[in-house]
């Protein structure tokens, strides 16, 4: 039950960046990266400026670079593509280290690498400084449809439950001597997916019944989205009716465990 206790990329802290409202952070991220993407590839000093802004925010948030840099590996597959660009692009040939490459390709490769890296770094900063529950509340404030926010909150809440289930199946297979080496083992792995789907679907049905039993009427109050800690819910529990419903459907850790075991 990871709800309210951070997620894989979350870097715990109490800086101004951590405390900033999530909806503003999401808006800032989207507009910042849009501007970065719209910047011409050859505007080298501007990209240095973007990087400086991000490093400044990282310093302000007390998120060390040693935390951010290893997590940039998400973009490795496309770095390979960027490195191929100078050889694949059309354009004026230039000599670099004795190899003939396309000059336009070089600039394009730089642009791709710079924009991609700045984009990943900016997204990492958002993820590192924002709790999942705060993010969901922020999305709701940005007028993302309530139904979609509900679905996302259930996904985030049960993500670890489901992936842990998959991990336990992996341990069970390996402890019986199973090793996945080549496509001959696909049938076993595919059956794992089938079993995982049955378990996940039935868990969803149990969760739904547990919600109905607690008075679920199709909407989830903001306080429940905020998770058990309720940190981000100040100002949302003040209304009498809402607060009442919140106490009914609020995902208490012990209660959640009972839903799971139902």
């Amino acid at each position: 039950m990871g709800a309210g206790h951070g997620h894989a990329l979350h870097f715990h802290g109490h800086s101004a960046v951590h405390r900033a409202p999530a909806h503003l952070k999401v808006l800032a991220l989207v507009s910042f990266v849009l501007v970065v993407v719209a910047t011409p590839n050859h505007a080298y000093p501007v990209f240095a400026g973007y990087a400086a802004v991000l490093l400044g925010i990282a310093a302000l948030a007390h998120v060390p670079l040693t935390y951010l840099l290893p997590r940039l590996v998400v973009e490795v597959p496309f770095v390979v593509f960027a490195l191929l660009l100078p050889f694949l692009s059309q354009g004026d040939p230039v000599q670099v280290l004795g190899v003939t490459v396309s000059q336009q390709g070089l600039v394009a490769a730089f642009g791709l690498l710079a924009k991609g890296t700045i984009g990943v770094l900016a997204s990492l900063l958002l993820a590192a400084t924002t709790e999942a529950s705060a993010l969901l509340l922020g999305l709701q404030r940005l007028r993302v449809p309530a139904q979609l926010v509900q679905i996302m909150s259930f996904m985030v809440r049960y993500l670890e439950v489901v992936t842990d289930e998959l991990r336990r199946m992996h341990v069970a297979r390996e402890s019986r001597g199973f090793r996945a080496r080549d496509p001959r083992q696909w049938p076993v792995l595919a059956r794992t997916l089938g079993a995982l789907f049955i378990r996940t679907y039935e868990r969803g049905e149990r969760v739904h019944l547990a919600m109905l039993a607690r008075g679920y009427d199709g909407t989830i109050p903001a306080a429940a989205l905020a998770g058990p800690t309720g940190e981000a819910s100040h100002g949302h529990v003040g209304h009498g009716h809402q607060a009442h419903v919140a106490s009914e459907t609020r995902p208490h850790p012990g209660r959640a465990a009972r839903e799971v075991g139902a």
């Binding site: 993500l159 995982l196 969803g204 739904h208 919600m211 989830i220």
Partner: peptide, 26 residues
């Protein structure tokens, strides 16, 4: 119907897990 939020959320978590399971190729 009214199961949309929990069921879609759980199936989304399932899809996420599906993308985590690696199939060896060669």
């Amino acid at each position: 119907d009214d199961r949309t939020a929990p069921m879609a959320g759980l199936v989304a978590a399932f899809v996420f897990a599906v993308q985590m399971l690696n199939f060896p190729v060669a």
